[in-house]
Amino acid sequence: MKEKQKDVKRTPAVVLVLTPVLIFLICTALTVVIGIKPYNKLTTYLNIAFSDKMKMKTSASDVLKEMEQEVNEFKKEPEVSVSDTGEVVYPVFGEQYATLKCEAIDLYVPVFWGSDNELLKKGACQMSASTVVGEAGNAVIDAHVNTFFENLEKLAEGDIVVINTSYGEFTYKVKKQVTFVKTDKTYIAPTKEERLTLYTCVKQVLGSSDQRIAVICEPVEKAFYN
């Protein structure tokens, strides 16, 4: 009888309840310890594969909100006074120092200082041998005909071209359009008078083109930020 009672003697309820909790905690702790290295490795791989500041944000929608906010802030009119004269800021190679806008051909493109294949993929490039916009001389800006300057040939005399920089806004008027061979440097050489030259290749389906098309613009308004 005593043996039978011993047989059916039940484990206390507290032990029955606490055992699963303790085992779960022990196992979780062990898993965390074992998993630290693989987790770090995995995180590194994920960062390499999908790295971007978006991963650091709480969600993609947060990033979109931030971008929207940045755009709205950019849209705000600057409360600064302007004058005809002022000082230009010399950019460094590869820096986006201006934006080029021309409503006539629906053009809005960033302008980088210096010119190479990578920069030409991002926007228009200004030859570093030419003059910084706002100074006397020839400011020469080029871009690919297949990307940003695809409609350059449509610019007509009298069309307005605006260049915005960190130091001012400069408005030009199209004076003429010319075509020249790529070895001819007449239109991209330095000049005494202030002007803006936009140029690109003449579109060619087969092979590359030796012909260049340039739009020569003269300044009509200068607004240096004070």
Partner: peptide
């Protein structure tokens, strides 16, 4: 444990944050 991790990933939209 596995479900906890999975629910965390789903609840925080972890994968949607991939750039």
């Amino acid at each position: 444990l596995i479900m906890g991790v999975c629910i965390y990933l789903k609840a925080t939209d972890y994968f949607d944050r991939f750039a």
